[in-house]
Amino acid sequence: MSDVGWGLWGSWEETEACLNTVVGEWWGPDPVEPGSIRRWLEPKEFDCAIHTDVGAARAVGFPDLVAPASMVFSYGVAPYWSPGDSSKSIDDEPTQIQIPVIFNVPAPCNKSFATSMEVEFNEPLYPGDVVGCVSRLIDIQRKTLKVGPGAFLRQEDTYTKQSGEVIAVANLDIFRFYVEQGVTK
């Protein structure tokens, strides 16, 4: 939860209008390659040879070294800046990671937090793969919690390769709510 650009303001009617629609669609900017895998393994002290050694990956049936399954999210993050985009000023709000049910779906809410996430994997990621993501708002459950009135919004993210193969489908539950202080409109 944060006061920094924490969601798109709007009415509940505008929220409902987004139900079962595509609320975000983009491609990750970088292909899978060994360097980004190594940097992802590093802070977790994650030692598994199929992610770093082609021979080890082939020995267990993969055609090439394979990215960790949950790296699909990282390869699917939209760029924070691309050639042609304007430059940031010191007073601009920081660029946020793409979570469309927070930043693209209007709601009368000024705070939010993630409550649950799950992902089913279909296809491994190999060097050279590029990851696209399509996000849909698939459920809205209005609820008042002790933090304030709001709604649970479920975002379904479908990750695909450039070939169209579905890599994974993830469901992310976000609780968006309203508090009196620090309203962001």
């Binding site: 977790k44 994650f46 598994c48 990956a57 949950s70 649950s116 799950e118």
Partner: peptide, 20 residues
Amino acid sequence: ERLVRNWAGSCIRFKKIGPL
């Protein structure tokens, strides 16, 4: 994912992670 790989090695494939 690391916890599972440390235990099971490379012989498994992840089908689902979650609910987290």
